[in-house]
């Protein structure tokens, strides 16, 4: 899928760029995006190291276990056969906490850590697991309680009560996440069979 996505995006972009006359912008993007990627890396790496360090202390002292207890009931519904005492689930809990509090800079490094831990614990072997799909879904749908960015831009453009969208945002977030979860659970069930075959082949 990564191969197809990469190839399709580049090829479609070049064709589209030529047709729409945006090819010079495409050329510029091709040359500059790698620099942006390194900038993003620099931007992320400090946080990754910092939160990796804090996470390690939290893990050794048992703080993560305490955070994980809060999420156990929800996790039992969402994840299938996930070791609720393992490092992966601890990282998942910290990532979800950071997301809910709107701490994007902390959530991303913890999310990367959670994905790698899930990969190890579930012996993913290059094929994404059902639990990883659910975890990604938790991150691609917004769990943030306070829409601070949207509110500050609304204020800037003269909204009377910038935060009056809060209820709408919360209801929409929850319903969007539920829709995604239903789709994920349904697809996880239907693909369980074919995936089982895939695993047999790789084993």
């Amino acid at each position: 899928m990564m191969n197809k996505f990469f190839a399709a995006a580049v090829i479609i972009s070049v064709i589209c760029g030529i047709v729409t006359g945006n090819i010079s912008a495409v050329a510029e993007a091709a040359l500059n995006s790698c620099v942006e990627a390194v900038e993003l890396f620099i931007y992320l790496i400090g946080g990754m190291c910092m939160w990796g360090g804090i996470m390690q202390i939290a893990e050794k002292s048992g703080v993560t276990e305490k955070v994980a207890v809060i999420f156990r009931p929800a996790a039992k519904l969402l994840f299938k056969n996930l070791d609720l005492d393992g490092t992966a689930f601890h990282a998942v809990c910290l990532n979800v906490t950071a997301n809910i509090l709107g701490l994007g800079n902390a959530a991303t490094p913890l999310g990367i850590e959670a994905m790698r831990a899930l990969e190890r614990e579930e012996k993913a072997n290059g094929i994404i697991t059902d639990n990883m799909i659910i975890f990604i879904l938790l991150n691609t749908s917004s769990l943030t309680l306070i829409p601070s960015t949207a509110a500050s831009l609304r204020l800037k453009h003269g909204a009377q009560f910038p935060m009056d969208i809060l209820t709408c945002v919360l209801v929409t977030s929850v319903l969007a996440l539920l829709s995604g979860l239903i789709a994920a659970k349904a697809l996880n069930c239907t693909s369980a069979l074919s995936c089982g075959k895939l695993k047999e082949v790789t084993d």
């Binding site: 899930l118 993913a124 691609t140 969007a176 995604g180 979860l181 994920a184 693909s191 895939l198």
Partner: peptide, 20 residues
């Protein structure tokens, strides 16, 4: 990660966006 086969990851994620 070393994930190369993302199976149906995109479908529920985009379903959530569309529902949003």
């Amino acid at each position: 990660t070393n994930i190369r086969k993302t199976r149906h990851t995109l479908v529920p994620a985009l379903t959530a966006d569309f529902a949003g």
